[in-house]
């Protein structure tokens, strides 16, 4: 598959914005300026971006607790994300939700929530809505490897298969669920095989290779749209940061629970550097252009944070605004 220069630039820029934004949160989290629990997705950008860019704006996605990247990749505003993380009135959830409740229905981002597996069935429901309306949309459920422990996933797989719903179950397997390595959570079989007994088409994808992600998702989305039923995709990846916040801050010790060699191994497979290499090798952009992309991204991140910091906080008089019962 040969991608156009525009598409490659688009993928590249979206990934670096996410990376720079996530990394820009490290300081404010450590200094206490940002309180809301932030599950950073540094290292996993290629999945959010490659997948969302292979969808159309009308398609739906649902996220989980680690959804800054999902939100941005689907077209959510960087300013609105930053403002939500700073819990400001201008945030995408008006400061009521924080980092774990990101939404922008205008771009098909129907929400994210930290109850593990809590949004899987909701994504099935959005696909059901599309299938009833025959509107040609597809729906994507982002879930972690940890979510494969929850029963609702299997109920959702069965129902989606039974009704041939247009949904992609996008499992980001980063090998850990909080402090638990995957080998302590499930028997050693590829996650994607859980789709097999339901007759659901399933694929393993290198989640750190954005070109592969983009290509495989395009194919899956096309199949879904044609009515051939759900697709399960397992993306192999790794998060660079702690489960929540910059590191696994166990009892005040800023450390990572995972082996350092493992992290080093994955840093070598960095999705952004890989795309950069590809771009260089294929002379898509020259060094100057790459640098200017980075500067632009950095400026956008700075702008978004300045916007967030200068935005008003929700007012206490409005605490019950949006309460209806």
């Amino acid at each position: 598959m040969i991608l156009s220069r525009d598409t490659l630039c688009d993928l590249y820029k979206a990934m670096i914005i996410i990376r720079l934004f996530e990394e820009s949160l490290v300081e404010p989290i450590l200094s206490g300026e940002v309180h809301t629990p932030c599950h950073l997705c540094s290292g996993q950008e290629a999945i959010a971006v490659g997948l969302c860019k292979a969808l159309s704006q009308d398609d739906y996605i649902f996220g989980n607790h680690r959804s800054h990247g999902h939100f941005l990749a689907k077209g959510g505003s960087l300013r609105a994300l930053a403002a939500e993380i700073y819990c400001r009135e201008t945030g995408c959830s008006r400061g009521r939700g924080g980092s774990m409740h990101l939404i922008d229905p205008t771009v098909g981002m129907l929400g994210s929530a930290p109850i593990v597996a809590g949004t899987i069935s909701l994504a099935v429901g959005a696909a059901l809505a599309s299938s009833i309306r025959k509107d040609g949309r597809i729906s994507v459920s982002f879930l972690g490897d940890g979510a494969t422990g929850e029963g609702v996933l299997y109920e959702s797989l069965n129902f989606a298969a039974l009704k041939k719903l247009p949904i992609i179950f996008a499992c980001e397997n980063n090998l850990y669920a909080t402090h638990m390595p995957i080998r302590e959570c499930r028997v050693n079989r590829p996650i994607r095989k859980i789709a097999e007994p339901f007759g659901i088409d399933n694929h393993e994808v290198d989640g750190n290779n954005i070109l592969q992600v983009y290509d495989k998702v395009q194919q899956a989305a096309e199949a879904c749209r044609k009515g051939s039923g759900p697709v399960f995709m397992e993306f192999l990846t790794y998060r660079y940061r702690g489960h929540v916040g910059p590191d696994d801050n166990v009892q005040g010790l800023h450390m990572d629970l995972r082996p350092q060699e493992e992290l080093a191994h994955w840093l070598e497979k960095d999705p952004i550097q890989r795309l950069e290499r590809y771009i260089r090798e294929h002379h898509v952009m020259d060094e100057l252009e790459l640098q200017s992309f980075k500067r632009e991204a950095e400026n956008e991140v700075q702008d978004a944070k300045a916007y967030a910091e200068s935005s008003a906080r929700p007012r206490i008089e409005e605490i019950t605004r949006y309460v209806f019962a």
């Binding site: 309180h35 809301t36 819990c87 400001r88 959830s93 400061g95 009521r96 939700g97 924080g98 409740h101 906080r313 929700p314 007012r315 206490i316 605490i319 019950t320 309460v323 019962a325």
Partner: peptide
């Protein structure tokens, strides 16, 4: 607590 879901913003938490 007021009959309201827990808000994120610390300003709202303080009133909540």
């Amino acid at each position: 607590l007021p009959d309201c879901p827990a808000p994120a913003s610390v300003m709202l938490e303080n009133g909540y």
